[in-house]
Design a binder for these strands. Structure first.
Lengths: 240, 240
DNA sequence: TGGGCACGGATTGTCGACAATCTTGATGAT
DNA sequence: ATCATCAAGATTGTCGACAATCCGTGCCCA
């Protein structure tokens, strides 16, 4: 193993040094969410430090943040592993999402100015085409973003903050138990939700959101999938 | 050999070293929640390290955890300060709590075995006597615990996890804007909620919880209180 | 053969020292 | 007097080295 990773000036640096951690966290996060790093995968500190060209202390901070989000599990003296939510976790998370998003959707339908929905509509379009092209990764991230942005339109930081980790974990769950076929149906649900918000029917919009989440949960294939071993370094390599 | 003879130091040690941080975090947390450390107070790392007899790195971790709970705000290169939630924060938090706790209460009323409520009832009693004796600190912590434990009876980790930080921040808010007179009325609300859960009236129980939270919010005196300076070391001194 | 047991290598956890940044207070020019 | 500037001290941020712990391997003995 040549230590050619010393390329100090090729990709890392140039970062203000403060949000370099945010970049790393986001990088790992997306890889986890699209399923490139299956649950159970070990994230060795030294390994990550080398691939990102930073010190171990910094990696340590990143892992801690990811563990706050419950995307990785930190076992004492053992290391960091991609979290592996169980069936019960999935069930709880979906129920919690229905509770929260039903309300945020209702609020948005009552209060939002329709022109604020244009970005959202475009996002669903992007998600739809991604699903049609079988681009699972983009479909998942776009779908998550849809829910995230919709919730932010309710202008309630506490509700959005409570929802955020649930959205993250949902993506992780979908990477685990997800059924690819559901992606297209989700886009349809999202379009329908937007339609109902646009005409200001808050009750129906909330119900549509609830149905969307039920459908999502119903599409899960909850048989445990064996953990496939992956080359962590290769998956995380190209940082940008 | 005696297992306790090893560490007879003044205050710290004797901790397995792993959850010593948890002890420190909890210690600071309670002090914040009972209002002994007013919002805006600076928590210097060196100072905390000395008073707890640990290294700065440890304190650093603790502060990071507290900042994740949004009880302290971490300003880059400036230090850690007790968080100071604004009016809008308070409003959002109460709305979010109503959304979540309405549901958890409803679930509990439908599913819980009544003998499971005895601890809860005792807790409300404790809270009531604390309120009567003007023991504000205990009343606040007991009230928080009531909501926390009640939510855990719904057996939904996601909902409980989403609620937890809201309960914490509510206590902080109450320490800031709280009206002491409300404490007694809160205990009454709690008794009433338990009554309704016991007879299995889930709708009324949920409504009672909602009213409890509305009452709580209504009792806030939202004029900004000037930050009183405190001696951080003295407040945190007696650990254990 | 199979189950401890100890040892060496690898990995995580902790610490103290140093670098970077902010705060304070004094200085001086307008 | 007011404000800008700038050093000196105090505080936070980062790093590399060392300590503690874990894991796989080979050995020993029943």
């Amino acid at each position: 193993m040549s230590k050619s990773a010393k390329n100090s000036k090729s990709h890392p640096s140039a970062e203000p040094g403060d949000d370099i951690e945010e970049v790393i966290v986001e990088h790992i996060r997306t890889r986890v969410l699209i399923g490139a790093l299956p649950p159970g995968t070990k994230l060795g500190e030294e390994l990550l430090a080398e691939t990102f060209g930073v010190t171990r202390s910094r990696i340590r901070q990143c892992l801690q943040r990811l563990s706050y989000e419950q995307l990785v599990e930190l076992k004492a003296n053992r290391g960091a592993f991609i979290a592996s939510p169980g069936i019960k976790d999935a069930k709880d998370i979906f129920e919690a999402r229905r509770v929260i998003e039903r309300v945020t959707t209702e609020i948005v339908a009552r209060t939002v100015l329709t022109h604020r929905l244009r970005d959202l509509r475009r996002k669903v379009d992007a998600q739809e085409t991604a699903a049609l092209h079988g681009n699972r990764k983009m479909a998942i991230t776009e779908a998550g973003d849809f829910h995230r942005r919709l919730s932010s339109l309710a202008h309630n930081a506490a509700l959005a903050g409570a929802l955020e980790p649930l959205i993250l974990r949902t993506a992780l769950i979908f990477g685990l138990y997800g059924n690819s076929g559901a992606m297209f149906s989700v886009a349809e649900h999202h379009h329908r939700i937007l339609d109902l918000i646009e005409i200001g029917d808050s009750n129906e919009a909330a119900s549509a959101m609830e149905r969307c989440l039920y459908a999502l949960e119903g599409n899960l294939d909850l048989r445990r999938v064996g953990d496939a071993a992956v080359d962590v370094r290769r998956v995380l390599q190209r940082i940008l």
